[in-house]
C-alpha cells in the first residue's frame, strides 16, 4: 500500500534576509522557509543555514589547545584570522566580536576598534556580523563608530536588548545595517524586542533573532524548545516572530569543561582534540534542528562537520 506522508499546512513563512552589500564580494541570504527545518517533503527552505566563524578583536587569555593548534598564529591578528576562516575553513560570514572593548577588560577605545573593523573589512569579502562588548554604556559609544565605519556594507549589528536598543536601531537605520534582537531565552521578551525595534522604524525584514544559548549539557534542551516554539509561531502567521534565528555556538561550547579539559585531566573522556570539536558540532547540529539559520562557530573541524550535515539534510548530493 502506498504511504502518504502526513503534512501540515502552514499559513506563515519566514522573512527572507540578505546580509552584505557595498564592497562585499559575496552576500548571504537566510530565511524564507515555509516549514519546520529539513521537512523537505512538506515545504520549502530556499536558503539553507549558514556558518559564521567568530573572530575576536583580542585573543582569549586561555585559548583551549585544541583550538589554538587549529587556528595557528593568526589569533591576535583579527584580519589574518578572518582571512583564514574564509579562505581555509569556508566561513560564509565573519562574526567580529569586540570583547576587548569591555570596560571590565581591556577597555579598548572605539577608535581602536574601528581600525580593527576596517582591517577585517579589507581582508575579507564576506559579510560581517559586528558584535559589541555587551556593556550597554560602552556599546552605545562603540556601535555608532563601528556602524558608520561600515556604512553601506549591510552588516549585522549586535545586539539590541529590551533595555538597550535605541542606539543600535538608530545606527542600523542611518548606515543601512541589520540588527540582532536578543532575548534571555524568553520567547515573550524576544517578541517585545522585535516590536520595540519595529517601533523605532527598523523593518522586520532587517531583524535577526537571538536567544542566548548554552553548550551541549548546559540547558540546550530549553533553548531548542524556545527555537521550535518561535518557528511554530512564525509558521502560524505571527509576523513579529517571523525573523531568521542566529545561535552562538562556539564561545558557549568552549566554556564547557567537557570541551576544554585535556586528556591528562580527564583520560576517560578521550582525545581532547576530537572531543572539543565534536562537542561544538553536536551543539550546532541540535540548533539546526531547532530552526537556526546562522550558526556562529569557532573550531574549523566542527565547522566542516556541520557544513557537511547541512548539505546532507538539505538534500545536496543525496
Amino acid at each position: 500500500m502506498a504511504f502518504d506522508m502526513p503534512t501540515e499546512r502552514w499559513s506563515g513563512k519566514l522573512n527572507t534576509v540578505t546580509i552584505g552589500a557595498g564592497t562585499r564580494t559575496s552576500t548571504v541570504t537566510v530565511g524564507g522557509a515555509s516549514t519546520l527545518p529539513f521537512l523537505r517533503f512538506e515545504g520549502e527552505r530556499p536558503n539553507p543555514p549558514v556558518v559564521a566563524m567568530e573572530v575576536l578583536d583580542e585573543p582569549l587569555d586561555d585559548m583551549p589547545p585544541a583550538l589554538a593548534a587549529e587556528l595557528g598564529d593568526v589569533v591576535g591578528d583579527p584580519a589574518a584570522w578572518a582571512k583564514k576562516c574564509v579562505e581555509s575553513f569556508g566561513a560564509d560570514l565573519i562574526c567580529l566580536r569586540f570583547a576587548g572593548a569591555n570596560p571590565e577588560g581591556k577597555d579598548k577605545s572605539p577608535e581602536d576598534c574601528k581600525a580593527v573593523l576596517q582591517s577585517v573589512l579589507q581582508a575579507v569579502g564576506v559579510p560581517l556580523i559586528i558584535w559589541g562588548c555587551g556593556n550597554y554604556e560602552k556599546d552605545n559609544n562603540l556601535i555608532p563608530v563601528l556602524s558608520q565605519a561600515a556604512a553601506g556594507e549591510r552588516c549585522v549589528l549586535a545586539s539590541a536588548v529590551q533595555d538597550n536598543y535605541k542606539t543600535i536601531a538608530a545606527c542600523s537605520l542611518a548606515d543601512g545595517h541589520l540588527v540582532i534582537g536578543e532575548a534571555p531565552l524568553d520567547i515573550q521578551i524576544q517578541k517585545q524586542v522585535n516590536i520595540l525595534l519595529s517601533d523605532m522604524g527598523v523593518s522586520p525584514d532587517n531583524i535577526i533573532m537571538y536567544q542566548t544559548t548554552g553548550g551541549l549539557g548546559y540547558g540546550v534542551e530549553y533553548a531548542y524548545s524556545i527555537m521550535e516554539r518561535t518557528r511554530l509561531a512564525a509558521l502560524s502567521g505571527d509576523k513579529m516572530m517571523s525573523m531568521p534565528m542566529i545561535a552562538v555556538v562556539g564561545s558557549e561550547c568552549w566554556k564547557t569543561k567537557e570541551a576544554r579539559l585535556s586528556e591528562e585531566v580527564a583520560p576517560e573522556w578521550g582525545d581532547a582534540g576530537v572531543r572539543g570539536p565534536l562537542w561544538e558540532a553536536t551543539t550546532a547540529t541540535m540548533f539546526l534542528h531547532g530552526g537556526t539559520d546562522i550558526l556562529v562557530m569557532w573550531h574549523p573541524q566542527a565547522v566542516a562537520q556541520v557544513k557537511k550535515t547541512i548539505a546532507e539534510l538539505s538534500g545536496e548530493g543525496a
Binding site: I187, Q188, K191, Q192, M240
Partner: peptide, 13 residues
C-alpha cells in the same frame, strides 16, 4: 495559547 504573549500583545497579535 494561540499566540505568543508580549507586553504589546494588543498591537502585535
Amino acid at each position: 495559547n494561540q499566540s505568543v504573549y508580549c507586553d504589546d500583545f494588543l498591537r502585535a497579535n
